[in-house]
Amino acid sequence: MTLAIEEISKSLRERYARLKDENPKARIRNLAQKMSVSEVELVAANCGDIRSTPLRGPAQDIFKELGSLGRVMALTRNEWCVHERHGRYEEIRAGKTMGIVLGPDIDLRMFFGDWKTTWAVNDGGRLSIQFFDGAGAAIHKVYVTDESDTAAYQALVEKYAEGAEPWPAVQEAAAPEDSAVTQATPALRSDWLSMKDTHEFHSLLQKHKVARLTALRAVGADLAQEVSNDLAERMLRDVAERDIPFMCFVGNRGMIQIHSGPVKKLMRMGPWFNVLEPHFNLHLDTTAIVSTWVVNKPSKDGWVTSLECFAENGDMIVQFFGARKPGVPELASWRELLVGYCPLPLAA
């Protein structure tokens, strides 16, 4: 390390230690916010019990080798929701701009445009690989567990370890582009009704130059209707009680992580409503939900219904579907549940 970097690191470690003493249960992300720095800078500075190693090369190269670690815990989060899933990285495809993981347990969609740095982190003995964006926010973390191959982890770190110890160049996150159109035209509804696959929805928004919430508000109550903001918690309690398998999508600008299956163990802790299964944890800050929608899309397999929760800035917090695969109709039990939440009929 150069002298300047060492001085910066020392200052961050001292500030972090004081703040951690005052907030012993606070996560590194929250402490970074309180310190007005990025999480990756605290990792690079080895704050607290962290001992970090920068990894060189494209994140895609490292990602393609995560399967060697065996069973791990994958973590993706945004400001308001944390998604943790145990399993193996299987069927990994990582291209220049996009990637996908299609294992039965770890199910991911990667968008590599803003992936900037990768770090191996030993936090008091807890080992992980962590991927960060240009603003220094964590995109995705892969944690070694008792079921993981620790030797394979060490081999991966040694293979990609950076010779020097560069200080991460952090830039302020770019503001999302404002959609050019604040009101949707009638053509949006006709194009919506013409969809054959739910994956066409992103292209639909791009074609009409509208934000997601603008589209939901404009398309008609039979295709999208706003419901109570307590519905995410109610829905999770209902699917647990009725044993309905569902899909839960949580993402940020670089990653979407998906759980599929039933859940049973639910627990409220302050503002956070939690799913606490051995293989799947969800931590949802329900106080951050300012808009909740039941969304109804046509497909060649029939209607597909989702529950979507949004934050004050318009970002999606979490999205839920009934568990399904392409080519298979939506679960009747899921559809019945969501239709029952709607004050007005959905198109069918």
Rank of each mutant, 00 (worst) to 15 (best):
F63R: 01
A332G: 06
L307H: 04
T118G: 01
P345Y: 03
G163Q: 13
L284N: 10
A155D: 13
A26E: 14
A180H: 03
K209S: 14
G124H: 04
G134D: 11
T292N: 04
V275K: 05
K297H: 04
E90G: 09
W80Q: 11
W192A: 07
A215F: 05
G220M: 06
Q60Y: 00
A187R: 14
V82I: 15
W115V: 13
G70R: 09
E91N: 15
A169Y: 01
D222Q: 15
L282Y: 08
E6N: 12
F201G: 08
V290L: 04
S260H: 06
A187K: 13
L12E: 02
L266V: 08
A311M: 02
T118C: 14
L156W: 06
E336Q: 15
A74D: 01
V210Q: 08
V250A: 14
G322E: 05
Y89F: 15
F310D: 03
I139P: 00
A137M: 12
D123S: 15
D230P: 02
T118N: 12
A240H: 07
L337G: 06
F201S: 11
V304N: 13
A161P: 04
V275R: 03
W192C: 09
E90I: 08
V219R: 03
L204W: 07
S306Y: 08
M269W: 04
D238T: 14
G113I: 02
N78T: 02
F111E: 04
E22C: 01
E6D: 13
A161L: 04
L66E: 09
Q33V: 01
R126I: 10
D301S: 15
D21N: 12
A74V: 09
L307P: 09
T214I: 12
R29Y: 11
